[in-house]
Design a protein around this nucleic acid. Sequence first.
DNA 1: AGTTTTAGTGGACGACTGTTCTCTAACATA
DNA 2: TATGTTAGAGAACAGTCGTCCACTAAAACT
Lengths: 222, 222
Amino acid sequence: MVDDSARAPARARRTQAERRRQTRQALLDAALLQMEAGESFDALSLRSVARAAGVVPTAFYRYFTGMDELGLVLIEDSFRALRGMLRHAREEGRAPERMIERSVEILIAYVRANRMQFAFVARIRSTGNGVLRHAIRTEIRLFVSELATDLARLPILSEWTTEDLQLLAGLLVNTMIATVEALLDAPPDAAPSEAEIARTAARQMRLIVVGVPSWRSRPAAS
Amino acid sequence: MVDDSARAPARARRTQAERRRQTRQALLDAALLQMEAGESFDALSLRSVARAAGVVPTAFYRYFTGMDELGLVLIEDSFRALRGMLRHAREEGRAPERMIERSVEILIAYVRANRMQFAFVARIRSTGNGVLRHAIRTEIRLFVSELATDLARLPILSEWTTEDLQLLAGLLVNTMIATVEALLDAPPDAAPSEAEIARTAARQMRLIVVGVPSWRSRPAAS
DNA sequence: AGTTTTAGTGGACGACTGTTCTCTAACATA
DNA sequence: TATGTTAGAGAACAGTCGTCCACTAAAACT
C-alpha cells in the first residue's frame, strides 16, 4: 500500500503509444455516443466530439484530418464487428429448420451488444456526405455476397444460379436491416417490443424461404 | 407592346395571397433541392434555405417557426404524393400476373417524377431529429396498412389473417424502400442501371409472392 | 546526460449560424 | 383617398464552427 516507485498524481503514468491509443479511442467513442443519442452524423461537430473526449479541438487533428476520416474509421470498425457476427452465425447455425430463429437471435444479441455501432451505420446509411454513404453501400454489397456464398452451401440451394442467390441474400439482408432499424427505434431495454420485433423478423424471413422450393429463375414467360 | 397600365420594373404585380403562396413554396423547394444535392436534412440551415429561396432569413419566420416545422410540412407533402401513387397503382393494376411488373414500373415512374420528395424521405428516415424520424415511421406504418387492406382483396389472400397480411405488406414495402434507395443512389438519368434495379425489384417481389401459396401462419411446429 | 520527438494546450481568426428587433413599401379594405 | 395590414429588408446580437499558429511538458532516443 505504501509502496510506490511510480505514484503519479491521479494521472497515471502511461507509455506514449498507449496514451495515443486511448485518446484516439476516446474520440471514436465520443462520436459514436453522440450518434446513439440521436444526432445524425453530419450534425455533430469536430469541436463537440473533441470536447466530449476531454480534449482540445486541435488535438483532434493529431488523429484524423477531419470528421470525414473519423467517419470512415467508424464504418470500418463497425463492419468488422458485423463480419464477426456473420462468422459467428455461420459456425453456430447448422440445423436447417431452426436456422432462421437462431439467426434472428444472434442478430438481436449483436444489436444489443453493439448498439452504438449499429446506430451509427443505420444513421449514416441514408445520410449526407456521399463519401461515407458510398462506403456503407459497398460494405453492404460485400455483406450480401458473403451471405450468398454461405447460402450456396445449403442443399436446397445447391443448383441456384449466382444471380438468384444474390437476389435471395439481398432480400434477407433487407429484412435484417429493417429489423435492426426497428430495434434501434425501440427503447434500449424494452424486452416486450424487442421480442415482437424478433418474431416479425423471423416470420418475414420464413415467408421468404417458403417460396424457395417453388422458385424458378425465369418463371414460365407469360 | 407600348401599352402598360401597370408596368412594374420586372417584378410583376401580384396579389398578396399569391405572393405568400409563392414564397412559401420557394422555401420548401429550396430545402428539397438542397437535400437532393446530397445534404442531409439537419445539415442544412435556415439561412441557406432562405438564401436559396431568394429571401432574407427573417422572412422565413413568416411561414415556419423553424426548420423542424418545415420538415414536417415536407413529410406531409411527400406522403401525399406517395398516397397518390398507391391510389394510381390500385386503379391501374388488376391483372394478377403482370401485377408485380406494373407496380414496379409505377414505382419507378413516380421516383423519376418526384425524385426530390423521395430523396428527402429516404434521407430523413434514418437521420437525426427524433420528431421528424418518428413522423416518417408513422407514415410508413400507415402505408403498410393501406397496402395490407389492398392485398386482402386478392382472392389468393382472402383467407389470410390480418397479421399475416401486415407481414406480407411489410415485406413488400421493405423491398420498395430498398428499391427507392437504390434508385436514388444511381445517377438521375442512368437508364441501364435503372432498368436493372427494376428487374431486381420485380424478381425479389416475385420471390416473395411465390411463397404465398405454401405459407401457413403457424407452420407445423418442429 | 542532453536532445529530439510528440500529445496536448491555448489563443486567435474569419465565417456562418439562429434569433430579435426596427423599419419600409406594397397590398387590402373602407 | 386614407387606414390598417403584412411580406420582406436590414442591421445587430451572442454562439459555434473549422482551422491555423506558437507553445509546453512529457516521453523516447542516444
